[in-house]
Design a protein around this nucleic acid. Sequence first.
DNA 1: GTCTATACTTCGATAGAC
DNA 2: GTCTATCGAAGTATAGAC
Lengths: 175, 175
Amino acid sequence: MPAAERSTRDRLIDAFETLLVSAGTRSATLDAVAAEANVSKGGLLYHFHSKDELVEGMLVRLREQGRADVDKMRTAKKGPVDFYLTTSVNTGSAFDRALIAAGRIAQENDSRASAALADLREGWFTVLREHLGDESLARTIQLIGDGLYFDDTTGLSEKNALKHVRDVLTRLGAL
Amino acid sequence: MPAAERSTRDRLIDAFETLLVSAGTRSATLDAVAAEANVSKGGLLYHFHSKDELVEGMLVRLREQGRADVDKMRTAKKGPVDFYLTTSVNTGSAFDRALIAAGRIAQENDSRASAALADLREGWFTVLREHLGDESLARTIQLIGDGLYFDDTTGLSEKNALKHVRDVLTRLGAL
DNA sequence: GTCTATACTTCGATAGAC
DNA sequence: GTCTATCGAAGTATAGAC
């Protein structure tokens, strides 16, 4: 969908996510979100009656994106492991942004965000274990993906991290 | 050092870290920190003239703890890889708390916190690579540690994660 | 559906008594 | 070294015009 056609509601969630990812929860205020989306604060609060509802709306959208991602992973050309690893480093996609944003919210003790992230991870893990037929290997690969993701979101990522991982996973016959 | 003898300054940093870890940056206000440390806000601001100085003090202490941790890792009885992995899951130690707290601050776009964490990671990586003589394996193990740490701090940790990792690393001859 | 104006609360920080 | 009192700015949310 072209950006110009996005509903105000969607643009508000976009703005909320963008602020969460780039500056953290303390900077993602209603004022800032409204400004980022070029809407007044009153306009924002028409669509979401509270900040809590804004979080809720974001998580609903994340779950939809998550279902689509697991489907893509299952049928990926190079296989699920490769797909999972390459998408664990932030590619700047809308889904990445939503995922990182939810992570920030989860760290503020929000059980809804934690639950959404846990469900997503379970979906990925199921595909990995089915494909590999090896629980330990599947869990370890998921941890590597979490590490890639964590490093990316904390500004700690190494340039060649993925190359090194592929090297090791090839030795294990997982790639 | 017994808890009763800890200086007010140290207790304030303790309280700040505790709040960051348990409830996130939005909840770690000066009011809340002072209350957690059983000090008035004025008392807090005598020791740290601003919230920024409180962050600074926390990071100084983290770097000291980090140096001690790398030393312990280097001389660990079961070897640095085992030490690194077992200490990547939150054991509830003061160092773990400081590490997680710094991670929260880093996500609010604080370059000092990011730099401190990056330096710590570099220290661990150096020991891993020296011990293993294999950069790809060292990087991969570091990512697994990051994954364990991330899962722990987001409430996503699996009970048997470490067991699965040990299994896979044994196949690779790293343990 | 979006805006302005405003009420109420909380945050970070200062001033000054003890 | 610690406390109370207070200020200005920023936060969430409501009311009502357009």
